[in-house]
């Protein structure tokens, strides 16, 4: 049974992905800042899942989390899914610097800290591995009012490319998955008109769902994806086509 760490599992894509990975036979350690009822239920009903508290923007907490998770799993670490992230909206000219700092600390530095800890495990194990950074089409295309968020996601794509080069010789692949607009809590703040506009511009005529993204992540975790690294896989219904 392969062991995977997923960050940001309390809701949305992280929660849905965790359920999908468990259904496919993976052992999963997940983290988030706080517990949720859904996590409690998942932990109660599945011995192959354990939740840990961790703020990924805090390097010390990521060290503790990865160490504790690997001790719990009693298995080599096969994969890391860097999914934790926050979104804050506002034009940059009036966007508080403290909000930009917090967003970049969690979305970008958090992923970097987690990748560092995972790579330390994977290098010692010397049996390959997978790192998948959950990016966004907003990282490559930009979006009004989401400058810091866009910068953080573009940064994740750069992180994937650099780590892919750095660790490829050890059979460790590093890729980004860039979803488009997903029907999750994160997109619930979209106005009806904005939502309709996005759907109208999407060739496949709808917002994406967790079920559209999870299979692509599972593919990148699989042996079949062993020769794919440093790539960004866009899953957006064709809106950036």
């Amino acid at each position: 049974m392969k062991f995977i760490i997923v960050t940001g599992v309390s809701r949305g894509l992280g929660l849905g992905l965790t359920k999908a990975l468990l259904s496919s036979g993976y052992k999963v350690a997940g983290c988030s800042r706080s517990r949720s009822d859904a996590l409690n239920e998942l932990e109660m009903s599945n011995d192959n899942f354990k939740w840990f508290p961790c703020e990924v923007g805090d390097a010390t907490q990521t060290q503790t989390f990865v160490s504790d998770a690997c001790q719990w799993a009693q298995a080599p670490l096969w994969g890391l899914i860097n999914n934790a992230g926050i979104a804050k909206e506002g034009v940059l000219a009036t966007f508080p610097n403290v909000d930009s700092d917090e967003l970049l600390q969690i979305n970008l530095n958090g992923a970097l800290y987690m990748a560092r800890e995972a790579l330390r495990m994977m290098l010692r194990q010397n049996s390959g591995g997978r790192i998948i950074n959950i990016s966004s089409i907003i990282g490559s295309r930009g979006y009004t009012g989401l400058a810091a968020y866009s910068a953080s996601k573009a940064g994740l794509d750069g992180l994937s490319r650099a780590l892919a080069r750095e660790n490829g010789r050890r059979g460790i692949t590093v890729n980004s998955v860039a979803p488009g607009y997903l029907d999750t809590e994160m997109s619930s703040t979209l106005s009806d008109s904005k939502r309709a506009q996005i759907i109208n511009r999407t060739p496949l005529g709808r917002l994406g769902t967790v079920d559209d993204v999870a299979p692509a992540i599972e593919f990148l975790l699989s042996d079949g994806a062993a020769f794919i690294t440093g790539q960004t896989l866009t899953i957006d219904g064709g809106i950036t086509n």
């Binding site: 330390r120 290098l123 010692r124 010397n126 750095e166 010789r169």
Partner: peptide, 15 residues
């Protein structure tokens, strides 16, 4: 050895 081997050595020594 390469740089990744050296990194592996340092991680192991820390542990």
């Amino acid at each position: 050895m390469d740089s990744l081997d050296l990194a592996t050595l340092l991680v192991t020594l820390e542990l």
